[in-house]
């Protein structure tokens, strides 16, 4: 049974440089058992560096971190025994079957052969690969490989899971398998750190999110807290057959027009304080002579929060 009373992962002011470039600058966090923490940021933000330090495969130049109370720099072996790493790349052997991959990584985690075999069977079931257990992993689809990749990191049931973008390039079905596994792990009391640049995944899975950009933690908190902290609001985008006249929205309280992104036709973007006034917005547009061809309501999310806080999007190259 996993002890959830103490922080499973702690980090304090972690810094790591590669040459002149500071990849991670002063990261601090505390993750409890059963908690899913998201590292959200664009590529190159420092997420993988942070995970590598926590996974003991990279030493921090300053700061300290621990896994279940074991210092990652000084008590490496003990720390490793408490964590499971799912790297960003598909870290499996294509020449081995799914079962053999699982057994191999289980054995490398110090499990007995019997236990490894039994856990491999169970994990194959859990990730939906039982029927392809004896096929070489190289013959799997991308989603299947991702599921096997996750299973290999979780087979020894570690109290801490470090997941580095585990859903890159997977189909929705495999993504769902993965989400369910993560949620199950969290439910079992494991601490999960989930690195992603998909805000939807962070919103779906993470109890708390650290927005990371250029090595810095820009903000942290629950997704809602971050959205609120960023001050972003919902907006409605209208595509009309004719151009709406100037001041067509004037007079409606809680709504104001902003300059929207350029389109092929006539587009207007209106920020609303509350989603309840959206029907009124549509009515005003029709009254102003603009026949609405299409409209979309955009609720504020972490992407908006990130943009608001950093000035650029999650997918932009930093």
């Amino acid at each position: 049974m996993i002890d959830t009373r103490t922080n499973s992962v702690e980090a304090e002011n972690l810094t790591r440089r590669f040459g002149e470039r500071t990849a991670l600058n002063g990261l601090s966090l505390a993750v409890e058992g059963g908690e899913v923490i998201g590292f959200l940021g664009p590529n190159g933000a420092g997420k993988t560096t942070a995970l590598s330090i926590l996974a003991t495969i990279l030493r921090p130049h300053s700061g300290r971190a621990s896994i279940c109370g074991f210092d990652v720099a000084r008590e490496t072996g003990a720390a490793r025994s408490k964590l499971g790493l799912v790297p960003q790349s598909i870290a499996i052997y294509p020449g081995l079957s799914g079962r053999e991959n699982l057994e191999f990584f289980a054995l490398m985690q110090g499990l007995s052969r019997t236990t490894a075999y039994a856990l491999a069977e169970r994990m194959l079931d859990e990730v939906g690969l039982a029927d392809r257990a004896h096929d070489t992993a190289g013959s799997y689809s991308g989603g299947m490989k991702r599921r096997l990749n996750l299973a290999c990191g979780m087979i020894h049931s570690p109290p801490v899971l470090l997941l580095d973008e585990p859903t890159v390039g997977v189909d929705p079905q495999s993504r769902e398998w993965i989400f369910e596994l993560i949620e199950k792990a969290a439910a079992e009391g494991r601490a999960v750190i989930y690195s992603t640049n998909y805000m939807e995944e962070a919103e779906r899975l993470c109890h708390r999110v650290l927005l990371i950009d250029q090595g810095h933690v820009v903000a942290s908190g629950t997704p809602q807290e971050l959205i609120e902290k960023a001050g972003t609001r919902a907006h409605v985008r209208l595509d009309t057959l004719t151009r709406l006249p100037q001041g067509w929205i004037r007079g409606l309280s809680g709504a104001h027009e902003i300059e929207g992104p350029p389109g092929n036709g006539f587009t207007a973007t209106v920020i609303v304080d509350e989603v309840e006034i959206v029907p009124e917005v549509l009515r005003l547009a029709r009254d102003a002579g603009g026949e609405v061809k299409e409209f979309a309501l955009h609720q504020p999310n972490l992407q908006d929060a990130f943009i608001a806080l950093t000035g650029h999007g999650l997918r932009d190259a930093s």
């Binding site: 590598s52 072996g77 490793r80 790493l85 598909i90 870290a91 499996i92 052997y93 990584f105 985690q109």
Partner: peptide, 18 residues
Amino acid sequence: EWGTLDRLRASRSPIAAT
């Protein structure tokens, strides 16, 4: 490149054994 080396480095077995 696959990441298996990182996974093995983060495992209980020493990397030297690998």
